[in-house]
Design a protein around this nucleic acid. Structure first.
Lengths: 196, 196
DNA sequence: CGTCTATTTGAATGTACTCAAAAGCGGTGG
DNA sequence: CCACCGCTTTTGAGTACATTCAAATAGACG
């Protein structure tokens, strides 16, 4: 049963009694997201945050020229949304797309706020989640600023091996901030080195 | 009196009674940081988080080649630390430097943890801080990935006008991820446009 | 005033991009 | 099951953005 997993996951950070667990689970709405469908489209009000039970999701930004930048991937155990727009009840800048058939729990902005009020222990849980997200993004910025694309690519493969298996090179390139052509060139350069 | 400011600042997010305010203030240690001195050096255990009362601080990363990347600036009203290493009680990757004579409140890792336990309302406060920090870094990543250096420079000037007044071009360049020479070239290009 | 660092300028170089075309791969329908 | 379609990946040539290195100029500070 899936609900066991999310409670187990939360249990690594905070302790809940049976009532609290039930109260929390009651707020969640299970959703199936077929491959290539969107949980969130750009411009629509960002109403929900999602916990991934299974599958793979991608959040990406599209600039005026149509170029996509992948902001994050999410696999089982991750929460994903357009956090800025979720918090501030604004139209989403990001789109959320299923990269394969996925199953998520949906939690609405209002229910999230109620949850934090009703069960203050969730303030701690989300404080830890936000703190992890912050430090993760900061490490990403440090890397983007200080190391070249080739090394960032290998770091990505090492840090997110499960994600790397599920996504295309094009998507990895858009996460690293390079073109798919250039990523391809890096890879073949590496192969030539390895072979010779 | 400075303590009024920090309490006022916190009061924008959570409500504290007089006892809680006193308990919180008792954890803080006031520190003067003269210009060009370091609050935190790379490799030292990152023991503290700092709230800036006055002045300007900079957090930066130094790579193997000696190149500096500015991770953040902090002026009055901001908290600053090497968050990843603070949370995980690790040697700092970042250095914290005063760009002018500054005055800060220091809160140690242990006292921070006690504060969260003793006054759970601070879980909410730091949840909001972490959430703001996360969304800020995510917007920065989106910009770094999707827009060219020249536009990022102007966005920086618009977003952080007070910071821009206090820091050198070299430091702004290292925040944007470009060399000072290239920033200088962008600026003179802009001037030529404006003049002609 | 002299020293130190920041900023500017320019030339040569390198990293990454654009555009175009070919090859590979997966899914779908006949 | 095979043929075709669309998308991803590869490859290559030409280009643009950004860097490095060097040197001159300007500013800040004791």
């Amino acid at each position: 049963m899936h609900s066991a997993f999310i409670l187990q996951n939360i249990g690594r950070h905070i302790s809940l009694n049976k009532e609290e667990e039930a109260h929390f689970m009651a707020q969640l709405q299970e959703k199936l997201v077929p491959k290539k469908t969107f949980l969130q489209r750009e411009g629509n009000l960002c109403r929900n945050i999602y916990y991934v039970n299974s599958g793979t999701l991608r959040a990406f930004f599209t600039d005026k020229t149509g170029r996509e930048s992948t902001i994050m991937f999410a696999i089982a155990g991750w929460w994903i949304t357009d956090m800025f727009c979720f918090i501030n009840r604004q139209p989403a800048m990001l789109q959320l797309e299923a990269l394969e058939d996925s199953q998520v729990y949906q939690l609405s902005r209002d229910d999230w706020e109620s949850l934090l009020n009703d069960l203050p222990v969730f303030e701690k849980y989300f404080r830890i989640l936000m703190q992890n997200a912050y430090t993760r993004e900061q490490l990403r910025i440090i890397q983007n600023l200080s190391i070249p694309a080739e090394e960032r690519y290998h770091n990505f493969l090492n840090k997110y091996p499960l994600v790397a298996k599920q996504v295309t090179q094009k998507q990895i390139a858009s996460y690293l901030g390079i073109t798919p052509e250039f990523l391809s060139a890096l890879r073949s350069k590496k192969n030539r080195k390895t072979i010779s």
